[in-house]
Computed example of a mutant assay.
Amino acid sequence: MGKEVLLALVNNAALLITFVVLYTAFYVKSTPSRQMPRQINSGLLLGLVTVGVMLNSWQLSPGVVCDTRSVALGLIGLFFGFIPSMISASMAVGLRILMGGEGTIPGISTILSSISVGLIWRHYRRRDPGDCSLLELYLFGIVVHIFMLLCMLLLPSQSRETFFEMAALPVMIVYPAATMIVGWAMTGQIARKQGEAAERELASTSEKLAVIVKNSPVAMVSLDLDYNVTSWNEAAEEIFGWKCSEVLGKPLPY
């Protein structure tokens, strides 16, 4: 039975990884100009990811289900901050209430604890979560799921015993590893986005500098290490008499 639980949790974790990859491929690459709409859209889409794994949960006993919502919500809190976290958590809580059963209170507690651990970790880290190491992500996953196990103490006695006998160990094997893998995918996407933003910033700065140099009333000339001319602005043409096309790539003519 333990093998069955392990396979069910692995399948749900794989589904979460697939959803996150799709999210990063089709949404995170875009960079909307208004911050608040971006946060709301992120929260709604990440909430749908969480709902997706919850709808494909594995039933341990009537009303008690296992899925990777804790992985998703912990990482949402860590990487996306308060507003997306509250939207995603609200969607997850609403679905868990609709699902009902004796696991409702522990399930809601897991949602709240996972999102809280993510937000607290983000706050005290005081650095961009995009540079999280694999070890840090794995430790983060362990902490999130220790709190999840504590929430499972709220189950009725029989269901609690069943959970800790059958699912507690598979949860602590699969879920921290899933947290590490999904978090690693997110850090890679964040790093790419930061690189793209830096390239755009550099291109914008270069364009502005080129306009300033071109329209400057002062002669501006640049040379390479062999003292050949690499730039020659309009003021240099007027002052020294040589056209730009005549001096580029050649030794300084004066």
Rank of each mutant, 00 (worst) to 15 (best):
G2Q: 10
V5A: 05
L9Q: 12
L9N: 06
N12K: 09
A14T: 09
L16P: 01
I17C: 10
A25H: 14
K29A: 04
Q39T: 00
G43P: 07
V49F: 03
V49G: 00
V51G: 02
V53Y: 01
M54C: 06
N56L: 06
S57R: 10
Q59D: 13
L60N: 10
S61R: 11
P62E: 11
V64C: 00
V65Y: 14
C66L: 15
C66N: 15
D67T: 11
S70L: 10
G77I: 07
F79L: 00
F79E: 02
F79S: 01
G81D: 03
I83H: 08
G94I: 08
R96I: 04
I105A: 00
S109Q: 03
L112K: 08
S116M: 11
I120W: 14
R122T: 05
D131G: 13
V144H: 12
I146M: 14
L149Y: 12
C151N: 00
P156S: 02
R160T: 05
F164L: 06
A167M: 13
V171A: 08
K193D: 01
A197I: 10
A203K: 11
E207W: 06
L209G: 02
V211Q: 06
K214V: 06
D224C: 02
S231Q: 14
N233M: 13
A236E: 09
G241P: 10
V247N: 09
Y254L: 11
